[in-house]
Amino acid sequence: MDERMVEYEAKKQSPIVAYILLALFGILGAHNFYLGRREQGVAQLVISGAVLATLVWLFLSFAGAEMGDFFGGFDAMVRRMFALYTISIIWGIGIFGWLMVNAIQIPKLTAEHNLRLYRRMFGE
Rank of each mutant, 00 (worst) to 15 (best):
104 I>K: 12
108 K>N: 10
51 V>Y: 06
102 N>F: 04
75 D>Q: 03
55 L>W: 07
46 V>C: 08
108 K>Y: 09
77 M>V: 01
16 I>T: 13
60 L>N: 06
27 I>K: 02
2 D>R: 12
90 I>N: 07
73 G>T: 00
102 N>I: 03
79 R>Q: 09
71 F>M: 13
23 A>F: 10
114 N>C: 08
107 P>S: 07
1 M>L: 15
51 V>L: 11
81 M>R: 07
19 Y>V: 01
20 I>W: 10
100 M>Q: 13
104 I>R: 12
9 E>V: 12
118 Y>L: 14
122 F>L: 12
95 I>H: 05
53 A>D: 01
88 S>T: 14
15 P>R: 05
56 V>Y: 04
25 F>E: 04
85 Y>C: 07
79 R>H: 07
92 G>Q: 12
12 K>T: 08
19 Y>D: 08
83 A>Y: 11
16 I>P: 01
8 Y>Q: 10
8 Y>R: 09
23 A>E: 02
16 I>Y: 10
33 F>D: 06
59 F>G: 09
31 H>S: 07
70 F>E: 02
23 A>R: 06
2 D>L: 09
87 I>V: 15
6 V>M: 15
55 L>A: 04
103 A>T: 05
123 G>F: 14
123 G>C: 09
108 K>D: 10
111 A>N: 10
110 T>D: 07
43 A>M: 13
44 Q>R: 14
38 R>K: 13
25 F>V: 05
105 Q>F: 06
123 G>A: 15
55 L>R: 03
27 I>L: 03
31 H>Y: 03
42 V>C: 03
117 L>W: 09
65 A>Y: 04
84 L>R: 02
64 G>D: 06
16 I>W: 09
119 R>E: 15
69 D>L: 06
15 P>F: 04
117 L>K: 07
73 G>W: 00
26 G>F: 05
112 E>K: 11
92 G>I: 12
102 N>Y: 05
32 N>E: 11
